[in-house]
Design a protein around this nucleic acid. Structure first.
Lengths: 200, 200, 200, 200
DNA sequence: TACTAAGCGAGACGGTACGTCCCGTCTTGTC
DNA sequence: GACAAGACGGGACGTACCGTCTCGCTTAGTA
């Protein structure tokens, strides 16, 4: 009935240095608490209980709930963001968008990110970090467009980050209104709208 | 120093029926608390204090913080959503997007909506309400595309709600990462990308 | 599952005069609420719900919870206080004490009185009323001693109310510590102590 | 105007162990609130405010208002219960009774105990604790009678706790009806009634 | 080899807010 | 003018977390 893992033998300090076992246990507990109880049931207390960790240990390394969620999201090895390079901008963008949606649909990643975005709205520092992270992601994904421009597939005057922002904003909108189930046809429609426009 | 309006003569019950004065005072107080203290400082207690209302009076009519924020957002008369009809799809979409961003930039509307989206992530019922509201808004804004399709400006096979969703998602993304200052050139770039595509 | 008696057809006013049916319903509901939920669950709200009465109707006629409990205790027809007159002071006192304890043991009278004493401790007006009531009761019961003095069974210098006070205080003590089960032998011991003393 | 003692420097936790300073402050505040505002104005909230303590700190150590009042009553160093041993049962009992009444008359002890008895009527656990405490007190005071029996001053068949119960019940009755001012003559009359009886 | 310094689990602390229950008052519309 | 009904401002309830603190411990690195 207890939330703590009773088999584990209560970690101790390993000296005047950060204990990686504690760090891992806290991140794992944070993820578990969030996925089991939802954002409303997520609290530092609950994470500490679950991880058999002291609250100060958490506060020592993460300044806020949002910072903790940020690390939970980041440390998921499952998150292999796709930087596709098929040599074809249409396929690249389809892979980018469907990969993003797929990642969020699987294994609770979307729930974690959704919660992170929500928590960040109440913590300016966390929001700044999130914004910076998103800017970097846009920059990375902008490579898709830059390569396409080099190949002559995309007009040279298009800002490279604009298209990734449109697609990832679309994904955010779906994530935050719980409509992540997007069909391939819809993905095509979105990508085609951005690529070829909606004019006849 | 006190938060309450000391000049007002302390509302009373007006019988076994809802008191509109209380309702108004609560909504006004909720908006004021949110804008002054931010989402982190927003609480039912603070709203009740500010409105000189009892907490049960608030809980009687709004089941959650998100529901209250929803009403605050809705009851703002300033929110005149633009349903532009210039006879030209490009101008319509530019007016739609810039109107949305402008509305959120002014008078705290954006802060309210941002907070509502965040709070809704932790309250399934509120999230469902928000999703339904957004669906309705997409439907309304889809008229822009339907009219353009009737005029032959937009391909007939484009789902009418797709474009409003792309544009409003773009606006959400900016709102939630505090980058609402969008230049006319950026708006044009977004609208043109969707209209004409990014291909040469 | 509801507490209200749904079969009864919601009494109405009978004009500009007190409605005895409401009064009865309120007293009955008060007793029922107290006996079912204990003193901790006793409230004017609960009584009003149960009696299908408006709260103002209760407050119109009883100034406080203690006043209501006082009436509940009084209006119990079952309370036939014994003013025994066996012609023998020992039997009179035994009947008096055992009658008091018996009354409290039966049908919730003790629970009501216990609650009344407790509530009165926080309401000076109610405590004054209770004290006056107890003084009158002592006076009445003092007749037992006065008659015994007239018969020469009791010393003339004994204040007549002293013995009833000793016995009723003993009963209060038992009531307030939930030890109302007193054997006849104990009653005899108490009465004999007061009558003949404990000296050899 | 504030209730809190502004000179004190805001206690902190002293680690994972109970802070005696907090405990003392809470007991002192509880006593002060009760004596200043009466039982009706006594609340955990008020005690917490007065003691500059958090409500959870109070609830951590005392399960209920009655439990807190119990400790307030107990921890009064002024309560020096008299276990008189004059070698004379009459003087012992007079000292016992007058000591009890005197204690309750002084410094608010009576008010505290009166409130404790009242609160306990609504909390079964507290009432059980109070009953057990009273039983122990009767046992202790019964020594007076046991010694007197050993000296031959009291009949051997008298239950030793009976007389203390009669006297303390008399005192309870006076306490709970606010008639603690008992003259020496009345005390003598009560003690003599129990000692020698009321028969001629 | 002893000492220092920092990390650790633990949990109490002063607080704030939660969502609920009840207080006593008020007003409405019916009788 | 009494009645059922129920909303009102307000206050207290008992609980969950917040972020901070001190404790007693364990160990790594320094002296």
């Amino acid at each position: 009935m207890t939330e703590t893992d009773e088999t584990s033998p209560a970690r101790r300090s390993i000296g005047a240095t950060r204990n990686p076992a504690s760090q891992d246990a806290i991140l794992a507990a944070a993820e578990a608490v969030l996925l089991e109880n939802g954002l409303g049931g997520f609290s530092i207390e609950a994470v500490a209980r679950r991880a058999r960790a002291g609250k100060p240990t958490i506060y020592r390394w993460w300044p806020s709930q949002a910072a903790l969620l940020f690390d939970v999201y980041h440390n998921r090895k499952r998150i292999n963001f796709i930087h596709p390079d098929t040599g074809n901008v249409r396929d690249d963008l389809r892979a980018y968008l469907s990969g993003l949606l797929q990642t969020w649909r699987e294994g609770g990643s979307g729930e974690v990110f959704r919660s992170l975005v929500a928590k960040a709205q109440g913590e300016p520092a966390a929001l700044a970090a999130l914004s910076a992270y998103m800017a970097e992601r846009r920059e990375q994904s902008g490579r898709i467009i830059e390569k396409a421009q080099a190949r002559g597939e995309v007009r040279a005057d298009v800002p490279p980050t604009l298209v990734p922002e449109l697609l990832s904003s679309f994904a955010w909108g779906r994530l935050l209104t719980e409509r992540l189930e997007v069909s391939d046809a819809e993905i095509d429609a979105v990508v085609d709208a951005v690529l070829s426009g909606i004019k006849p």
